[in-house]
């Protein structure tokens, strides 16, 4: 008996809200709920009323009615107009969710069967725990080492799939200190239900203290610099025009002219692809097949460190700040699938 009451005591019907953006989603959710309730009650009432009023009685025959075009148009168009409100409101919220503010703090998340690895710009990292400060927009850049995962924080009303082969991102502004659950919401195999963790929202000062406890191996870009030397990147990517490979200083978030005439933005997705599959997009003036494929050689976590290092190479700006023309979130180009003979990997 006590077990039952314990279960009931924990019964919650509506999730806690702990992000600023979530208020809009909740308002929209309740707007749709109310429309649904009104429609359901109307239809149920009409059915109950007709069922009673027109119940079969002896010697009373049904009246044969063909229909009514006016009524049909009314109950097609009116609901559609109401649905247009949902559509526009929902599209607005979705658009906003893809526009991280420029001052968003960046955190990197890598999903793999069956854990979330979190990396901070200061070099610290943790597993299945995410620490974020209050009132500060946070942008997660996410990669998967294996299958599709989905990163979900119900209390923030955010979710995004983490698809292997490219970067995904989402952002939020925590608004309430506390500990909130995070889930993987795309089925990813045996221990899918164990791919869970906690988001810790801390007061700003508390967070600064927690951060200063940070990583032991230097900041994320310093870790990247070590890798840059270790993988021999520095032998070709020299800081003058003499190298056989493009200069990386000041490259981040700048347009790059490609050998095929196209121009791409040197964002995270482009840098990731150029590390793992350099031949996918060759910069104008350089030969293909000079840099080896690093696909399968470098983990997503190391790629994140390397990119952090490349970002820090912006000469005119402090390392922590991002480029001037912060582009809207670009849907990362999918893998091209060419020039990669021999890269196939058997698992």
């Amino acid at each position: 008996m006590w077990a039952d009451s314990l279960v009931l005591a924990q019964l919650s019907l509506f999730p806690e809200l702990a992000s600023k953006e979530g208020a809009n989603i909740d308002a929209l959710y309740w707007f749709i709920n109310i429309i649904c309730i009104v429609m359901t009650v109307l239809i149920f009432f009409a059915i109950a009323f007709f069922a009673y009023k027109y119940r079969r009685r002896p010697h009373v025959e049904a009246m044969q009615i063909e229909g009514s075009t006016k009524l049909e148009l009314t109950w097609s168009i009116l609901p559609f107009l109401v649905m247009l409100i949902m559509f526009a409101w929902g599209a607005q919220a979705y658009y906003a969710a893809q526009q991280p503010p420029r001052n968003a703090m960046e955190v990197f998340v890598t999903g793999k069967q069956w854990m979330w690895k979190v990396q901070y710009p200061n070099g610290g990292s943790e597993i299945n725990e995410l620490h974020v400060p209050m009132n500060q927009p946070v942008k997660l850049t996410m990669a998967s080492e294996d299958v599709i995962h989905s990163f979900s924080i119900p209390s923030f009303r955010v979710r995004h799939d983490v698809v292997p082969g490219h970067y995904d991102s989402l952002w939020f502004t925590p608004s309430k200190p506390g500990r909130y659950r995070l889930f993987c919401t795309e089925y990813c195999g045996l221990l899918h239900s164990k791919m869970v963790g906690w988001v810790n929202v801390m007061e700003e000062r508390e967070y600064a203290e927690w951060m200063s406890g940070g990583g032991t191996g230097g900041s994320l870009s310093q870790q990247g610099e070590t890798l840059f030397a270790q993988y021999g990147c520095s032998t070709c990517h020299l800081n003058d025009q003499q190298g056989r490979c493009p200069v990386l200083r000041g490259l981040y978030n700048k347009p790059v002219q490609l050998a095929n005439g196209q121009t791409v933005l040197a964002d995270d997705a482009y840098l990731r692809e150029s590390i793992l599959e350099p031949n996918a997009k060759i910069a104008a003036g350089f030969e293909p097949n000079i840099m080896p494929n690093f696909k399968g050689q470098i983990s997503e976590q190391n790629v994140i460190q390397l990119i952090a290092y490349i970002k820090s190479l912006a000469p005119s700006q402090p390392a922590s700040q991002q480029g001037p023309q912060q582009a809207p979130v670009v849907i990362a180009p999918r893998a091209q699938g060419n020039n990669r003979a021999g890269a196939a990997q058997q698992r």
Binding site: I32, F44, Y94, S150, R157, R159
Partner: peptide, 22 residues
């Protein structure tokens, strides 16, 4: 009716993000 109407939450982009995969 209930099944159809709750499809609206999932057709709406903003609320689909909050309910997808749940």
């Amino acid at each position: 009716t209930i099944g159809g109407l709750t499809g609206l939450h999932l057709a709406t982009l903003g609320t689909d993000v909050a309910t997808h995969g749940t």
